[in-house]
Amino acid sequence: MSLLQEVWQAVKAIGTGMATVHKRVYEDAPTEFYPYVKPDLPPVSVQSLALVENEDGSERCIVCLQCERACPAQVITIERHRNPEGKGFLIDRFDIDLVNCMYCAACVEACPVSSIVTIQDFEMSTYDLQTLKADIDFLHEQARRARQWYSPKFGVELRTEDGRIEKAPPEMQPGGLAELLKPAEEVDS
């Protein structure tokens, strides 16, 4: 290959490269200015876990230990005792070690009453790992702070301004649930 050809090849390669870069300059950036702009996460996104209480403050969890059995990382520890008046069990201890949790949401799949849910709060960085060894108060507080959460049984639920819990409208529900909740005539058409 002659020197002229080599020079021409180099110029052409630089030209194509610069043309591509130039094209991208005017496209919308895929990045977000994070601390100022919060990302819009889909409702199923698994960022953290929370333990939801009923509207009247009573416990939704029935202490069936399904989540403890389903957990692959074995980070859930539950202790319970039989309810002296009435039936069922009462919680003595409900700990999730969020440091070793791998956020697979197997516990959320297993929960029969949608008590343990996934929330979109991902800002959990801390200087001390011990603060992420969550006990029941921590998990309740996570749920009180959350505006919406997801569980496969109940779908997306919202917390309204006055503290009530209601089911999100069908267009917010992901996956097959949206199909289920649609009015019958819409599915037929």
Partner: peptide, 25 residues
């Protein structure tokens, strides 16, 4: 992937007999 499976890199989405949940509309 995140819209359907809930996670980006480690979605834990397949299960015995199919997939864990239906895809996002």
């Amino acid at each position: 992937v995140e819209k359907t499976a809930g996670a980006r890199m480690l979605p834990n989405y397949y299960t015995f007999g199919g997939v864990r949940r239906d895809v996002h509309p």
